[in-house]
């Protein structure tokens, strides 16, 4: 399936784009999506994705629909959701 991911903050700068469409297996988990993002954007590895690609760094989070934060990476991704790769820190 194809998933659209919106990039905010550093992710947007590193990707050079505000969003991307990532193709993953139909049974892909969040973990697979993170790996796919790291493949598509190697510069994410380090500041956004952990070097072993097991998770995002503490600085970043994946938000679904503007309402929920992805916490369990082994859960399959549902198609058709708005996905946001954004800073976890909210301090102003």
């Amino acid at each position: 399936m194809k998933l659209k991911v919106e990039f905010l903050g550093l992710a947007r700068e590193l990707a050079g784009d505000a969003e991307a469409v990532v193709t993953v297996d139909d049974r892909a988990t969040w973990h697979d999506l993170i790996s796919a993002l790291a493949d598509a954007y190697p510069s994410f590895v380090g500041p956004i994705v952990l070097p072993d690609r097991s998770n995002l760094t503490a600085a970043y989070m994946l938000n679904v629909g503007g309402r929920a934060i992805v916490r369990d990476l082994d859960v399959p991704v549902q198609p058709g959701q708005r996905l946001l790769l954004m800073f976890a820190e909210a301090g102003g």
Binding site: L8, G9, L10, P47, A58, A59, N63, L84, M86, F87
Partner: peptide
């Protein structure tokens, strides 16, 4: 990584974050 937000865009990065959620 603990300060990446503050070092890259600073607190103004909140605008799109807050808007998105």
């Amino acid at each position: 990584p603990g300060t990446v937000k503050y070092r890259t865009l600073g607190t103004p990065s909140n605008v799109l974050n807050m808007n998105a959620i």
